[in-house]
Nucleic acid binder design. Structure first.
Lengths: 132, 132
DNA sequence: TTACATAGTGTTATATTATAACAATTTAAA
DNA sequence: TTTAAATTGTTATAATATAACACTATGTAA
């Protein structure tokens, strides 16, 4: 459950844009799209993005420097995220698999260390691109 | 098994630097360090980095925009990588776990899609930082 | 060997992504 | 209601990465 009501003006504007987008958005494309709403400079965008990521409302796709709205109630406040990325059409989908998150949350490295936070990006071809 | 012998001059210089480094190196820090060896401009660095990544000799730590030498014979030519990253000291360690790589290589998403390539970054505290 | 393709190099310029720094304003809580 | 914390607006600049083009080296196949 997210607490939508706590978003500030800029956060709201930027979240709505990302949430409506079918694909991940890059910071400067966001900037371009919200200039008519009074958000004029990069720091305004990056600050909102930082907060939204912190809240778990959006995620950063690290390999693409792009942002996508969270569509997965099980990624606890941006701590544990997994995505599939199509290398042809660049479609990004958030993976919500209880088995995967359980496996990764319990994964221990050689020293027995556990890591509560992770980001996983799978690459391949999406269904569409795979059959073309 | 890597084929060391196929590295070109610039690739060799840059790989050696990364390989000797105890921590991931950023592109411009690499550039600074190899200028005395005649590599003077960003494209020369990025081209070598691209090839080395392609070969699986180094990996890019996406969340840090930094490069680390491969220390894991099981990450097949850069296709399947996993790292742990300490959020305090920024120490990065390549994870080589047969169980993990097997699990991820066999992971199927909701549509039954398999992804042969992935990058996983775990975040937390390393042993040292955890006990301080 | 020659010639051809492919890969790598050197270089300049520029595009893209992100943050520093500081003043002003809003918000929430004591 | 006044104070602290968070948010905003703004300018400038830092950090990361690629485009484009001329040139050189390397491998290969006729």
């Amino acid at each position: 459950m997210h607490k939508e009501h706590t978003l500030t003006k800029n956060q709201r504007i930027i979240f709505d844009l990302i949430d409506k987008s079918p694909e991940p958005l890059k910071a400067y494309s966001i900037l371009f799209n919200v200039q008519k709403k009074g958000i004029k400079a990069p720091p305004q965008v990056y600050r909102a993005l930082d907060k939204l990521v912190e809240m778990g409302k959006i995620h950063k796709i690290e390999s693409r420097n792009a942002f996508i709205a969270c569509h997965n109630s099980s990624c606890q406040v941006a701590k544990a995220t997994a995505f599939s990325i199509c290398e042809i059409c660049e479609k990004v989908t958030e993976i919500s698999s209880a088995s995967l998150s359980k496996y990764l949350a319990n994964f221990k490295d050689k020293d027995g260390m556990k890591y509560s936070k992770y980001n996983l990006e799978f690459f391949g071809l999406c269904k569409k691109c795979n059959t073309r």
